[in-house]
Amino acid sequence: MSAEYLATVRPDRRQSLVAVPRALDTGQRSGTPGAIDAVVNHLQHVLPAVESLMASAGHLAEWGVDLAGRLMAGQRLLAAGNGGSAAEAQHLTAELVGRFDGDREPFSAISLHAESSSVTAIANDYGYENMFARQVQGHGRAGDILLLLSTSGSSPNLLRAVEAARKIGVTSWALTGPGPNPLADLCDDHVAVDARSANAQEGHLIALHAICRAFDAEVARCRRTEGGS
């Protein structure tokens, strides 16, 4: 836990953060000390992910504003990932088609892994590495955004998707784990979360919510401006 982070915490809470491992009532828990230490170690490694995102706060805000402008103009977001990153991609599209905090109009956002029949047909006929690229070719239009999530930044099916996006004028963004990595290098823009793989993935969810806050703020600002004109 960094001294810089502790400096931002209220003095009356610093001691409890530093002493987390011994603050647990281990005598009344079924977990062994080894399991407790593993949990505490994991939680403490969340902090580097958050610190990394704080350094990219302006970057995430820019993404939210850019995304809002494009979707309000009729473009769409395509999102993809593998495994847990697929779940996070779908989390983002749900926030945009549904809502995040307050009520607003829905926007076009598609999770490319969620079309199970398309995914299995494409993977069967063209190979797993092309399952996203072919959907980008089918759904993508110039000016759309393709957001790809990967802790490793090396998944072949995501790299192929970026190549397909570039050919048709779709802008590609990546949320990855520590850089440099192939996906970050290939995309038009990226935010790399400098943390262990699982913690980087947790950081990605925080980043997506931060983007949604900037997105909603920009939509609200534009709608107020339109209403006053």
Rank of each mutant, 00 (worst) to 15 (best):
S16L: 11
I36L: 15
V97C: 13
A73G: 13
R224H: 09
R141S: 07
L112H: 15
G203D: 03
R14I: 07
W63C: 13
R141D: 05
E4S: 12
D188P: 00
N41P: 00
E4G: 04
S150H: 06
A121C: 14
V193R: 03
R224W: 04
H190W: 05
V162Y: 05
A217G: 14
T120E: 10
G138I: 04
S197D: 11
A207Q: 05
A114T: 11
L146F: 01
C212K: 01
P21I: 11
A79H: 09
L208H: 10
T151R: 03
V162T: 08
F215M: 02
L77P: 07
G27I: 05
A217W: 07
A86E: 12
E218P: 06
A89T: 08
K167I: 01
L205A: 11
L43T: 12
A86Q: 13
R10F: 01
D25Y: 12
T151C: 01
S30K: 08
D144T: 02
V219G: 01
S56W: 04
R99T: 13
D25G: 14
R166A: 12
P11G: 05
A200H: 05
V119D: 06
C187L: 01
R213Y: 06
E51W: 11
G27S: 07
R10S: 13
D185C: 02
S172A: 15
R223L: 12
M72P: 00
W173D: 00
Q44P: 00
R13P: 00
R29V: 12
L158R: 01
H204L: 07
L24H: 05
L158G: 02
G227D: 08
L6C: 14
M54E: 14
A161N: 10
C222K: 11
D103N: 08
V97P: 00
N124A: 06
T171W: 01
S150V: 06
